[in-house]
Simulated scan of single mutants.
Amino acid sequence: MSKVNRGISKSRQVQRKHNKLPLIMALAGAAVLIVAAFFAFQKRADPFTPEVTGSPSLKVDKEKVDLGDVKLGQTVEVSFEVKNMGDQPLKFTKSPFIEVKEGC
């Protein structure tokens, strides 16, 4: 009788392995689809075409900023977007500074 019980338990083990196989295959397929979708829908960078060749070129998105009347001691903030439009690296050798002209 022990041989019969061993035969039944082995068949159950084989059956359990076969029951898990479709689940594992489905999960692996879903993982592949998720990875493929991630790469398919990634935002691609636009190809860069330099405006200046042979040297760096600085381009700022705002040439002038009017902050209106500002009281002495009041803090104001403004932001600029600076881009290198040349085909060579843009390096600052000194800290950039902003010049404020009176009456501007």
Rank of each mutant, 00 (worst) to 15 (best):
A37V: 05
E63I: 05
T53V: 13
K43N: 15
K43W: 05
T75Q: 10
V35H: 05
K71R: 15
G73N: 13
P56I: 07
T75G: 03
K83G: 04
T49H: 13
T49P: 02
V76P: 00
F38D: 12
V78L: 07
S79A: 10
V70S: 06
G68P: 00
G73T: 07
F38G: 09
V76Q: 04
G86A: 07
K62I: 05
R44G: 03
K64I: 11
E77F: 13
A36M: 13
V52Q: 00
P50K: 02
F48A: 03
K83S: 15
R44S: 08
P56M: 10
G73M: 08
T49G: 06
F48C: 02
A37W: 09
E63G: 14
V76N: 01
F39C: 05
N84D: 05
G68Y: 01
V65T: 09
E51V: 11
V52W: 00
V60N: 06
E63Y: 08
D61K: 02
E51L: 14
N84C: 05
V35R: 05
P56F: 13
F41S: 14
M85P: 00
F41E: 12
P56V: 08
F39G: 07
F39R: 10
S55Q: 15
T75W: 03
F38C: 06
G73E: 12
F48W: 03
V60E: 08
P56N: 12
E51T: 09
K43E: 14
S57E: 06
G54P: 01
D87W: 01
V82H: 02
D66E: 11
K59I: 08
M85W: 02
K59D: 13
Q42C: 11
F39Q: 14
L58I: 11
E77Q: 15
F41D: 09
L67C: 11
V65I: 15
R44E: 09
N84M: 04
E77M: 11
K71D: 15
V76L: 00
Q74W: 02
A37R: 06
V65F: 07
E51D: 13
M85A: 10
F38I: 12
